[in-house]
Design a protein around this nucleic acid. Sequence first.
DNA 1: TGGGAGGTGTAACAGATGTTACATCCATAA
DNA 2: TTATGGATGTAACATCTGTTACACCTCCCA
Lengths: 210, 210
Amino acid sequence: MITADSTKILKFLFEEELLSEIQKVSQLQKVPKGEIMIDVGEQVKFIPILLEGAIKIVREDESGEEVLLYYVEFGNTCAMTLNCCLENSTSEIRAICEKDTSIIMVPVSFMDKWLVNYRSWRNFIFQNYQDRLNEMLKAIDSLTFLKLDERLRNYLKEKSKVADDSTLEVTHLDIATDLNSSRVVISRLLKQMENEGEVSLGRNTIKIKY
Amino acid sequence: MITADSTKILKFLFEEELLSEIQKVSQLQKVPKGEIMIDVGEQVKFIPILLEGAIKIVREDESGEEVLLYYVEFGNTCAMTLNCCLENSTSEIRAICEKDTSIIMVPVSFMDKWLVNYRSWRNFIFQNYQDRLNEMLKAIDSLTFLKLDERLRNYLKEKSKVADDSTLEVTHLDIATDLNSSRVVISRLLKQMENEGEVSLGRNTIKIKY
DNA sequence: TGGGAGGTGTAACAGATGTTACATCCATAA
DNA sequence: TTATGGATGTAACATCTGTTACACCTCCCA
């Protein structure tokens, strides 16, 4: 059970009746920046809907190497997570809070009933599957068709959009991890970009110039 | 309208009543091997369900470079296509018949109604979204974490599985296109694999040895 | 029968990315 | 203040992948 106020900001997504159902059965969770919300191999038994903040979704292989898949933002849920809710399997991905974040957690058991009863719920679920598929496609495009320097540019742009700030607090190693590259390579490319006047670099900060 | 026989082989997926609805409103389409079923930028107004054969799904960028995403086989549909059915947008991908193929084409307009009325339809749709997301994840893993030689091995294995034949009819150029690489590189790697006894090569054929 | 198109083999080279090694700088805790 | 760990800069080199060029083969059609 959560307060009616929490759900009110989702009223652009769901009708009044569904909102009050959500309010009755869900829990509110606040997770601070940097914390791991869901890790690879964990069971997930709730559908997370993001009220505030942003979540970074990354994929990890057996040897511990990572790659960033996409971000989940306000009013969205993570379809990769729906996946393992429904199949009762474990998470294929890691979800890390990119900012301080509030989430509504809806028990999986309501999924099917609401699909039948609420058109807005159906729309919500399908819209999310579609968005996630499109994000995955973007990731594949980037990995397949772009050189690392272009991937880096896109990464910085995207991260700056999510943070809503043209100055990023991030280390070269962080970036290397997200792009599955190495720190030296990222430093090299960033220095090049600085020389071209695209960014200015400082300790733990990158300022993007337009 | 199609024959009842055509839908009967889907009875492991749908209940009797839904099967007869599908039969009433759908069309059967046969597409020969090699033909493009759906191309990038096309409108799609039906949900394709595969009765027979296999379909290769590839992504293309602006400059005409390609990469193979995954195969769709018997009893499945292509969630990337559902995508553009529902959004009324155009296809982000190209679907090419890998074998002679029969498809049931269900008009999009029934999608929502059946979601409400048939649990088996809901399961079908969600299972397909999940399968596609997992395929996309596999593609990302492969692109991110594997060297080209391993990607090539996986490619040959997968293609042989879909063809149900350990001898593939394929040129080095075909493979290079699917993996977004170049013919010379693929020839080089294949020759290496032949020297290691993993495959034997002939004109237009690759035989996989275990 | 001759010739062209497409498929394959191979060498030499180029460019992008990853690795290793080491220097320096900064922030902070002891 | 000093010591320590993390962040960054840079050089030298290794490796993987792509490119260009050319030879030769097979198939098929004019």
